[in-house]
Design a binder for these strands. Structure first.
Lengths: 390, 390
DNA sequence: CATTAGTTAATCAGTCTGCCTATTAATTGA
DNA sequence: TCAATTAATAGGCAGACTGATTAACTAATG
């Protein structure tokens, strides 16, 4: 464990990076406001802001007015200090790629979707081309991008650098992520799509103020993301949240039943068929059931899902459980209430259950948010490590 | 989020607390060694150590010898800077209280057990008396204790300050913890006994180097502690790890079956009876089965436990699972192998499974360790906050 | 004219570099 | 074998340097 110790240089680096961090997450600030936040003196605050502006990290965005005395300058992080890109790689939903680009203040400058056919095109080529196009749309250049965050329907093992359990052609090749980073000359990070949806839920959804939450992703497959105070739990091999494998009942010698068999997309469609509902897709079936007020089907479904959620609650005791994914969204409050009822019979803790508050593409928003955070950390960290050449 | 900014005072505070922290977790150090660790210069290191000694936080414990040049002084944290007490409150095992006291370097100075009858004596009285006795044995005074850590067979909700789900008489009363802290004039912390066993497992057991692990406590009841990189996961209401409530199978309208029904102490005794084994206790039954090589019973038992472990693995994907508690200890490697075999059929991840490496009283050791950590944090933190009076 | 934003100057706290002295072990010489 | 010399290291001291602070000052605005 590295403990912080050093001389006055360290002090300056700390003060600058703290100030920049405040500009990032409190938005535009006057000198006085920054002074209050950091506890630094007036001349020091001036000096820090001068250095940040000289380094191109902060800019003056306006002046106060109204009160007596001179108008205070309002500073903000320079949006051109760096850009972040989020990419969502889709398995079932089309088009297969969704991208967005934002500046360091989080303003989305460009957004696009792109129907790449990975059966033919190399993933690296498709993503590189899409990002270049995105830059043109945003009026910037690829070399100004500081971080690219991918969201994939699979699990990523950072130790081997391979994306596993992914059904999109070409994406499971070893070295893909490194090659993409080389092509783009930018750090590329990968995460599971459900994890990124949880990031979006915290940033823009119902989990904004939660100490933590478990997000149950209910789509063709089942997924789970665990947020502990803003930090995602990924597990030893990126396998945390594979609740499809939660066993249901004792196996009697033969292969056991697990939650995927019970509440995966195919199981839901079978259940829908048994209730005389459309079977074009799990979400369609649920939407139709809700529209018709088909209680029985929804209750039966909720009871199955509740098994998984009960296991999660028993293990983690999260302050909140969020139901997300297209099936959960189709189910809405009706499904939520049914799940709550089913849970009450199973577990003694009455954990609040909520339906996702993110209506936009959660995976894409989450990826963008993750990328943005990485860009900010890079800039703040670079400032802290910078040893001023006397 | 408080960001660190300040002036040269902050620098001194940081350097001092960093140095003290190194003394705590690297043990005795020479000036030179500390210099290497902190990266500070010679005069500064000297100044820091002088201040720490003046404050009674560090002492000279010896001199180097052998090499050329003067003998370097060896500094260590002053053991008298503060003491920690760990207390284990027991439900089934007797005597009902176990205590230990250590100095700030972790040296255990006294240890005792005490057969308090909580049906008659007030918990506060019994604990206070036991701690006073412990101090006498250690040759110190109660007011030198900086932290008392209790381990209880129940869950503690820090927001309400009440211990719940505890069967020891008197211990579920509201305000008990605060009253105890008032009586002792010392901060008192409470944690679940299984959580503390996990702390001991990390400090002294098989999980020393693990990134994280799940500890399955297998005694009369079932418990689970989750360690994520040395940090325990407690859940929203202190209810994380109540795997007894993991549902097993769909409930068919009636009350559902959960893991406690399947693998709790009574279920184990029933299973033992069915296999013609002693039913004086779950641990006895397992010990007898292992002694006789009673495969069938152990396999059946392992299969039940595996259901719970599979759920934990599916949700968390821990790098390691540790089996602990008296039943697990009695089962030893035979039980472990049976569990591994049962898991292989259930989950695709082959998570390593180990039997606990703590032979001593894990709960007591864990409580002591927790208390020690709290004392050290207090001292380091006080140093950081101290504003030197010019 | 009162109030506030921001600068300038003087001071202070804390660390660093470089040099010095003291102490010890090893080596050399009688 | 014993004393003198030498090499190596621990630790202290002085002066320089960095960066923050306080307090006084200037300038802009209602």
């Amino acid at each position: 464990m590295e403990r912080l110790a050093g001389s006055s240089r360290l002090l300056r680096a700390m003060n600058e990076s703290a100030s920049l961090a405040y500009l990032f997450d409190r938005g535009p600030l006057t000198r006085g406001a920054l002074r209050e936040l950091t506890g630094l003196s007036k001349p020091t605050t001036s000096e820090v802001l001068r250095r940040l502006t000289d380094a191109g990290l902060a800019i003056v965005v306006g002046h106060t007015s109204g009160g007596p005395g001179p108008n205070a300058e309002i500073y903000a992080a320079n949006p051109e200090a760096g850009y972040a890109v989020g990419v969502s790689v889709r398995e079932t939903r089309l088009p297969s790629l969704a991208l967005a680009l934002c500046d360091v203040n989080g303003a989305v400058l460009a957004r696009s979707e792109c129907a790449a056919d990975f059966a033919r095109a190399e993933p690296e080529d498709a993503v590189t081309a899409a990002i270049e196009e995105l830059c043109t749309e945003a009026g910037t250049f690829p070399d100004r991008i500081r971080h690219v965050q991918l969201g994939v329907p699979g699990s990523y093992d950072p130790t081997t650098g391979v994306i596993r359990h992914i059904d999109v052609p070409g994406w499971n090749r070893p070295g893909l992520v490194d090659r993409l980073a080389d092509r783009l000359r930018v750090p590329v990070a990968v995460d599971n799509d459900v994890n990124l949806a949880a990031v979006a839920e915290r940033a823009h959804g119902v989990a904004a103020d939660a100490d933590g939450f478990a997000l149950v992703w209910f789509s063709f497959g089942l997924g789970l993301a665990i947020d502990l105070g803003g930090q995602l739990l990924r597990g030893a091999r990126g396998g945390a949240g594979e609740i499809g494998y939660v066993p249901v009942g004792l196996r009697g010698g033969g292969p056991g039943t697990d939650l995927h068999d019970l509440a995966g997309g195919q199981a839901v469609q079978a259940l829908a068929a048994a209730h005389g509902l459309p079977t074009t897709g799990a979400a369609d079936a649920v939407a139709a059931a809700v529209a018709r007020g088909a209680d029985e089907f929804v209750t039966a479904l909720a009871e199955r899902v509740a098994v998984g959620i009960a296991a999660v609650i028993a293990v983690l005791d999260p302050p909140l459980v969020v139901l997300a994914g297209d099936v959960a969204q189709a189910g809405g409050d009706m499904l939520r209430d049914a799940v709550v009822a089913a849970l009450r019979a199973t577990t003694p803790l009455d954990t609040p259950i909520a339906v996702t508050g993110v209506t936009d593409d959660a995976v894409l928003l989450g990826a963008l948010d993750c990328g943005l955070r990485a860009v900010r950390d890079t800039l703040v960290g670079a400032l802290r490590d910078a040893i001023p050449t006397s």
